[in-house]
């Protein structure tokens, strides 16, 4: 990305939502536990392709990269993830309720 053309630097900012802070925390905890390195996350991010940088937000890309690395490390299986996500999505329609607060 470095050196490419791009538009003006967007100056607007936002306060991080709880789910984004949790993604950040999971990145640090998973890294400290030795399940992945920053390079492993980086590789997963690069594998998503350029499209992901246009269509996904920053922490959306990160949770995808963390998940990819945890499955590769054998911490849980893709089937376990699928079942858990279905369970979470069946709980409620908002993040706050589905996360249990």
């Amino acid at each position: 990305m470095g050196g490419q053309d791009a538009g003006p630097v967007p100056q607007a900012g936002h306060d991080f939502a709880l789910w984004e802070k949790r993604v950040d925390a999971l990145m640090i905890l998973g890294s400290q536990a030795g399940h992945f390195t920053v390079d492993g996350l980086r590789r997963a991010l690069e594998d998503m392709g350029e499209d992901a940088f246009e269509t996904m937000t920053y922490y959306e890309r990160w949770i995808a990269a963390i998940n990819q690395n945890l499955i590769e490390a054998g911490v849980y299986s893709i089937e376990e993830l699928g079942r858990k996500m279905e369970e979470v999505q069946a709980r409620a329609t908002t993040y706050g309720e589905a996360a249990g607060g």
């Binding site: 939502a17 789910w19 911490v75 369970e87 999505q89 993040y95 706050g96």
Partner: peptide, 26 residues
């Protein structure tokens, strides 16, 4: 002075569901 991002009371997105699932599995 920053605008709020979509709060916890907005619709649960696919990636938010993944965050919850990953955290709970861990």
């Amino acid at each position: 002075g920053h605008p709020y991002r979509a709060d916890d009371d907005t619709a649960l997105s696919y990636w938010q569901a993944m965050e919850i699932a990953v955290r709970e599995l861990l």
